[in-house]
Every structure is written in C-alpha cells, then in structure tokens.
C-alpha cells in the first residue's frame, strides 16, 4: 500500500480528499486508487507545478503512480483508459445508488453520507478521461449536496426530509 504523502502543500488542500480516497482504496480497489491519484496529479499540475514544495509533492505522487502502474501490470483498466473510465464510473454509481437507496428508505447514517461524498469525489476523478457527461455532472452535484445536507441535519439533530 502506498504511504500517505505528507505534508500536503496548502495549494493542494482541495485534493486531500481525493488522495485520502486513493489510500482507502489501495487494497479494496487498486484501480480506483490509481485513478484518484492520477486525478490529483493532473489537477495538482494545473494548480501549481512551479513552487519547490509543490514540485516535490507532485514528484513523490508521480513515483507512487509509476510504482502502482507497474504493480497492476497488464490490468485492462490501467492499460486501456476507456476500460478504466468505465470501471471508475461503475464504482462511483454503485456507491451513489447505495447512498440514494438508504436516503429513500429514510435510513440516515454516517456511512451513507460518506458514500454520497465519495461518489462525488470519484465522479470528479472521471474528468481525467475528458469532460463529464451531463448525467455524471448532475449526479456529482446531487451527491455533494446530499452529503452536506444530511451531515448538517444529523449534526443539528434535525431529521432530513
């Protein structure tokens, strides 16, 4: 399993959740973990690839990606990005559906909040393959809003509608 990269430069704060999701999936689903890191790498390079601390961080992240790619060898989801894209999309939508079913059943808990939020992060990740489809864009928006809304309701003792 890849070690966590610390410290994350402040410029990359917005990527910390994607990197944490990568780490959480190193064993559970290495393909998902790989593409979360690739998203962080690609986005990080757009944010700042010039300052020494960011270059150092990105260089370590690239080391992790190269190692992970070697470990995954001839996996189709890695060698063919179109297969990888379908893999990440299916995984994200499964997570979204789980949370949505819990929501519709009136079962509100931390795990479903996390599922909504993780689904939104994985839908972000799909942007490494190109522009998001309108459907995925809407799913991402809904999942992120639901995660925040239910989290705030539970925190303040309210029952989500």
């Amino acid at each position: 399993m890849a070690a966590q990269l610390n410290p994350i430069p402040p410029q990359f704060k917005s990527l910390q959740h994607h990197l944490r999701t990568a780490q959480e999936h190193d064993k559970r689903d290495p393909v998902v973990a790989y593409y979360c890191r690739l998203y962080a790498m690609q986005t990080g390079m757009k944010i700042d690839s010039k300052s020494p601390e960011c270059r150092k961080f990105l260089s370590k992240l690239m080391d992790q990606l190269e190692t992970q790619k070697k470990q995954l060898g001839d996996c189709d989801s890695i060698t063919q990005e179109i297969v990888g894209s379908a893999h990440v999309e299916n995984y994200a939508l499964k997570m979204f559906l789980y949370a949505d079913n819990e929501d519709r059943a009136g079962s509100f808990h931390k795990n479903m909040i996390k599922s909504f939020y993780t689904a939104s992060l994985l839908l972000d990740t799909l942007s490494v393959f190109g522009e998001l489809t309108e459907e995925n864009f809407q799913h991402r928006k809904y999942a992120r809003w639901k995660a925040t809304y239910i989290h705030n309701c539970l925190k303040s003792g309210m029952t989500p509608e």
Partner: peptide, 27 residues
C-alpha cells in the same frame, strides 16, 4: 542565478509533464 533557477524549475516541470504523458501512454 535567477535565470538558472527558473531554468531548473522549468526543466523539472517538463520532466513531470513527460512522466505524466508516459504514464498515460501518450508519448
């Protein structure tokens, strides 16, 4: 030294871009 520093930074940036392209089999 300023221009040397800029040049080093730019080379490292290119290196990252090239590694990313290789990783994604885009070279």
């Amino acid at each position: 030294t300023g221009s040397v520093g800029t040049s080093v930074a730019s080379t490292e940036q290119d290196d990252l871009s090239q590694r990313l392209a290789r990783l994604r089999d885009q070279v």
